[in-house]
Amino acid sequence: MDMKEVPAVVTGGASGLGEGAARVLAAAGCRVAILDLQQERGEAVAREIGGIFVKCDVTSAESAEAAFAAAREAHGPCGISVSCAGVAPAGRIVGKEGPMPLEDFARVIQINLVGTFNVLRLAAADMAERAANGDGERGVIVNAASIAAYEGQIGQSAYAASKGGVVSLTLPAARELARQGVRVNTIAPGLFMTPMMASFSDEVQQSLAATLPFPQRLGKPNEFGMLVEQIVRNPLLNGETIRLDCALRMAPR
């Protein structure tokens, strides 16, 4: 897809991997709308990249519909959608205080999986209204999963289940939306320098980086954004989940 002037929506774009994707897409010529709950940070990033910010709760149909309407009014129907909004809490199925509260598990599924689908359905509806290019392509959807979808560690049952759902969603969504000329792909990142990672001490960061085969360092958000751009540009990438993890395979703990 030619990315110049294409309206792009990035959820979770105020920080971390979403911010990395928003910056790369803006640099490639896209008109970027950042959807996030972090208003102050999101507005600052939007100003820096020449985009717009819309406050959005991806777990709410009404909030997401209103956010897409605002982005559409500003830039036109969404042509590129990147879903990075998510949470990564740790919690054992049975901990010192008993079984995990069911609402804790449900909250992670609601944000990471249901939120991703909420955005996907709205982006696909927008894309179906766009004019097709020479390949018949109208839009590209990129979702964020995690390598925890494949090797979830102890304490990651909710997170791994939510990201496994995103991986499983990818192929059927790509098959269904092919008729509309919409491609769907997913990125499964490994260890990246996100705000959560930055909250850890240098010692912890270095110990985590030492587990990576090569390169032996944490990923940078713009490198996630680079893969988003490559997925958008390559018309044959469809229905795929791509690991971006320095060849890491996580141990049980």
Rank of each mutant, 00 (worst) to 15 (best):
E62D: 15
S63I: 11
A64D: 03
A64T: 14
A64M: 12
A64P: 02
A64I: 08
A64W: 04
E65T: 05
E65P: 00
A66L: 10
A66G: 08
A67W: 08
A67P: 00
A67R: 10
F68K: 09
F68D: 03
F68W: 09
A69Y: 10
A69N: 07
A70P: 10
A70D: 11
A71R: 09
A71P: 02
R72M: 03
R72W: 05
R72P: 05
R72E: 12
R72S: 14
E73C: 10
A74Q: 13
A74L: 09
A74H: 14
H75D: 06
H75E: 05
H75K: 01
H75C: 12
C78Y: 01
C78L: 04
G79A: 13
S81F: 00
S83C: 10
C84D: 14
C84T: 13
C84E: 12
C84A: 14
G86F: 04
G86K: 00
G86M: 05
V87S: 15
V87G: 14
A88L: 13
P89C: 10
P89N: 12
A90R: 14
A90S: 13
G91C: 04
G91W: 01
G91R: 15
R92D: 13
I93S: 08
I93R: 11
G95Q: 15
G95F: 09
K96E: 15
E97P: 03
E97G: 02
G98R: 14
P99F: 08
P99G: 06
M100K: 09
M100S: 06
P101F: 01
P101Y: 05
L102Q: 06
E103H: 08
D104W: 01
D104Y: 00
D104R: 13
F105M: 11
F105D: 08
F105W: 12
A106M: 11
A106G: 03
R107T: 09
Q110C: 10
I111F: 02
N112F: 02
N112S: 04
L113T: 11
G115E: 05
G115C: 06
G115A: 09
T116V: 05
N118R: 05
V119A: 13
V119L: 00
V119Q: 11
V119F: 00
R121E: 07
A123D: 07
A123R: 02
A124I: 03
A124K: 02
A125G: 11
D126I: 00
A128E: 14
A128V: 01
E129S: 11
E129A: 11
R130E: 12
A132W: 02
A132Q: 06
A132G: 12
G134E: 14
G136C: 12
G136K: 03
E137M: 15
E137C: 12
E137Y: 00
E137S: 14
R138I: 13
V140C: 15
I141H: 10
I141M: 08
I141F: 04
V142T: 15
V142C: 05
N143G: 12
A144K: 02
A144M: 13
A145V: 11
I147P: 08
A149K: 06
A149R: 06
